[in-house]
């Protein structure tokens, strides 16, 4: 990572180089796509085809949310830390609004199963985070907790 020299001012400091949040987000999206069929199958078994479609919609919602969050941070960090902070805070509001809009658009659809969508959103979001945290936490503590091949 090639960061700019320390200036001490968040308004003028910018961070060039690799964006770790994009790597984390990409990793989570990859893992999300791996576990999505399992989640969809479980929801399909419990709530039928409606549950499966709703579950797929929920997984897409969570993965797109992660992608937007990471993209926003990576883009604004190259400009200034102050802008990044503003973008994260306003981005939080905007993303909540987008999640709400995504639900309102399909709330009356024939395939909508609300319990399936809700459960999928929570399980996917927290599950992917915990899964990713295991690797990130281990990497940060390297060499003390370096992930082994069996992990």
């Amino acid at each position: 990572m090639t960061d700019s020299p320390s200036t001490g001012s968040p308004m003028t400091t910018r961070l060039d180089g690799a964006a770790p949040e994009v790597e984390i987000s990409r990793d989570m999206i990859r893992r999300g796509l791996i576990v999505a069929p399992v989640l969809i199958a479980i929801c399909g078994a419990v709530w039928g085809m409606d549950g499966a479609w709703s579950s797929a919609y929920g997984v897409a919602l969570v993965l797109i949310n992660f992608g937007i969050a990471a993209g926003l941070i990576a883009f604004t960090a190259r400009i200034s830390l102050g802008l990044m902070m503003g973008a994260i805070l306003f981005g939080y509001l905007i993303r909540l609004g987008l999640v709400l809009l995504a639900f309102v658009l399909v709330k009356d659809a024939s395939w909508m199963s609300r319990p399936s969508l809700g459960l999928t959103v929570i399980v996917t979001h927290l599950g992917l985070l915990v899964w990713e945290l295991k690797y990130v936490a281990a990497s940060l503590a390297f060499p003390g907790l370096k992930p082994s091949r069996s992990n």
Binding site: M1, D3, S4, P5, S6, T7, G8, S9, P10, T13, L15, A18, A19, P20, E21, I24, S25, F66, A69, A70, I73, A77, L81, G82, M84, M85, I88, Y92, R95, H125, L129, E132, L133, V136, L140
Partner: peptide
């Protein structure tokens, strides 16, 4: 942001934990 402005060489680690923290809080 305070940590990154004070110590830019640690920005990678701070950004990683910040992103995960944001996601957990969300």
């Amino acid at each position: 942001v305070e940590a990154m402005a004070r110590q830019p060489e640690a920005a990678g680690m701070v950004r990683t934990t910040m992103f995960l923290g944001i996601a957990f809080t969300e």
